[in-house]
Computed example of a mutant assay.
Amino acid sequence: MKTTGDQQLVKRINRSVLLRLMRRRSGLSRAQLAQESGLTKSTVSLLVRELIDEGWVTETGIATAQGLGRPSIPLRIDGSRRAMVGVEIAVESLRVVAVSLTGEVIWSIEEPLSEREPGLVCRQVAQLVVRAHQVLAEQTLLVSGIGIGLPGAFDEATGTVRFAPNLGWRNVVFLPLITQALSEAGAPPVAVHVQNEADTAALSEYEFSEGEVMDSLIFVTCGTGVGAGIVLNDRLFIGLQGMAGEIGHSILQVDGLPCSCGRRGCAETFFGARALDRLPNPAQGGVYLGVVLQNLWTTFDPGALVVGGPSCDRYPGILTTARDTLAGYATRAGVVEPAVRPARYGLLASAVGAAALVLYHELRPMHAPATVSPTDEAQDHPDDLPQDDLH
């Protein structure tokens, strides 16, 4: 006999199955969703009605005839009734955005980081999040959750920032701090998710992708620090304690220049913002960026490589140089290099991706595969609706 908790988890998985299908192919009908998901027709009807009532899904209003019976009504993700709030805690600034379910930036703000002490940072973040909630409330938009990206290794299991050298943070128990600050500032109680800012930047490209959907992507962010957000097989690859993707602290030169992390010869000392500022021609830092892209390519073979961050905005030549460097390695190996493109959301990439982190968790309950046994779901939702209700 199933427990209530088990039934709720099955329901969340079923919802995520339908949402993912509609994100992949807008315009599916209830009958098509039932056929493609393997869920019973009654389950689809009940869950679609729930998703419509909650503002996740809408009917297009254009019914199409499909053989006998009532016309089918196409469904799509509703970008007009729900939003997510995304926060980027950068080394010198804060960016906060409100983003629709379809990736539209509804509102954004940026201001300098006043202090670097964790508690004070959380208070400043909370004040801006409350402003975002106020803007969304004025537009009668529902808030699905808050996502936060920060420049360090975040351990999801403990809610701890293990290592953020450019903020001077080590082993900061961040999640309780930010939830307390949000509560004290009067923010509505919604789910809060935290991740490394390069990981969130990757989600801005992955969750709001245009065109062909790929199951792997790497986003390299270049600023004071250098990091990579890695999506593999439809999941963020974060490592055992959130340290995966800390490419700024991979070694490019044995016994090279000292780095903020305590090592020497890190990639950050070659094309981090401080290193670029010292170069007569900052674009030459792109050579080292190209080396790192080459190493990421041969290690992970991703479907897409995306580069963004403040350094790319300030010195656009580094991306051109990086592409040329990568192409040189590929030519010498007799293979075709992957495409490298700039960030779609520019300097808002990490903040938008932090908002997408909310959607990422909604679509992957317990990080489990978005599938369910028809036998299991039939026990929760008897197939007691007639065929004509699936229109």
Rank of each mutant, 00 (worst) to 15 (best):
G225I: 03
F208R: 03
S183Y: 02
V44H: 11
A34I: 00
S216A: 13
T140A: 15
T321Y: 03
D78V: 03
F300M: 01
G61M: 07
V172S: 00
T102A: 07
D6C: 00
Y206S: 01
R235Y: 05
Q32S: 12
T140S: 14
P165W: 03
R332V: 07
V17E: 01
R116V: 15
N295R: 12
P112D: 07
L252I: 09
P342I: 13
S93M: 10
G159F: 12
R23S: 04
W107V: 05
C261M: 08
K41C: 02
V307K: 05
H367Q: 13
G328P: 00
G225R: 06
Q253D: 04
V135W: 01
G69S: 08
D389Q: 13
A34W: 07
P382H: 11
C259I: 04
V254I: 08
R323L: 08
T158P: 01
V194A: 03
T3S: 13
I77G: 03
E205Q: 10
I218Q: 08
L363R: 10
P189Q: 14
W169D: 04
I238K: 13
E337T: 07
P342C: 11
P374M: 12
S26E: 14
A157F: 08
L51D: 02
E210F: 10
A98L: 15
G5T: 09
A228Y: 05
P338H: 12
I73H: 14
A356F: 06
R278K: 15
P310S: 15
P165V: 09
S29L: 14
G67K: 10
D6F: 07
S16I: 00
L167M: 11
G69P: 08
V143I: 14
R95K: 14
L319T: 01
V372D: 00
D313L: 11
R70M: 09
R76V: 13
L319K: 02
R263L: 04
L51T: 06
E88D: 15
L19F: 03
H361E: 11
G245T: 04
V44P: 11
Q387Y: 09
A339E: 14
L120K: 14
R344W: 06
Q124C: 13
E88V: 04
G290H: 06
A354E: 10
T375P: 00
A98C: 15
G334K: 08
F208I: 01
I247Q: 06
P71I: 14
G285S: 12
F163M: 07
V336D: 11
T179G: 00
A132Y: 08
G55L: 02
V44K: 10
